[in-house]
Amino acid sequence: MAVIPDLRVRIGALAMANPVMTASGTFGYGEEFASLVNLARLGAIVVKGISLEPRAGNPPPRVAETACGMLNAIGLENVGLERFIAEKLPFLKGIHAPVVVNILGDSIDDYQRLASRLQMVPEVAAIEVNISCPNVKHGGVAFGTDPAMARAVTEAVRAAFDRTVLVKLSPNVTEITEIALAVEAGGADAVSLINTLLGMAIDIRTRRPRLANIVGGLSGPAVKPVALRMVWQVARAVRIPVVGIGGIATAEDAIEFLLAGATAVQVGTANFVNPRATEEIIDGIAAYLQAGNMASVQEIIGGLRS
């Protein structure tokens, strides 16, 4: 009988039992999936993006289905930092999977204050910095589209938080490696990518956009080839670990990202389609390694042949 393969991976100081995490905004605060998924098995849980103050989000319609994907313009609705700590974190403490808090802000100061407060909360294993948000003080340009701003946000969080810091990159840029190198220089322990791709859909019957916000973020299987290409490019450019995200729905999808150089993956939209997706992916990676007589997942990370 084949030995059970070792699925453990490390992202900075964050040790995970396997490389499968949930993607922010697609798994609520964990609790929502408690009766459908064995949460303890997850490599890590990344919660919905948290801001300093609660946000109400955008008017509906907020989601629209597209070919093999979906658009969303949720508007970063969330309960805010203090309610997250008081109301959502107690449940997460009990599940034995590391908790990664995704944060978002309007200014560098917002990010720094979020990180300082989370530094005081020992149950938070890592922060994932969403830099796809507009910098309100700088004409609303997204932090993640400008290397200098991306680096400055990273430095601010790094200075305030001494556990693992992941910076989540926006794909809506010309040169993703440039941003990845900037946040590496800013002290990030890892980069995660991709966030959603900006898109749009129109109802030709009413001639109205399908989203009240007109444009929204595309996710799901439709984005996978783009995400895989960007992960491969970034993994070759930086020395820190890369977490692959985008359209991952099966173990085969996840293995593609690992081969392209990702140390771990995040599962997003697939949680909506198949709430058991994360567990099935963990089992599928183990089965793939076993079938290939590989003892550890490390043997496939970056294992792309050319």
Partner: peptide
Amino acid sequence: MMACGLAACL
């Protein structure tokens, strides 16, 4: 319109 039905996507 609903993407998840599970209180996750908002």
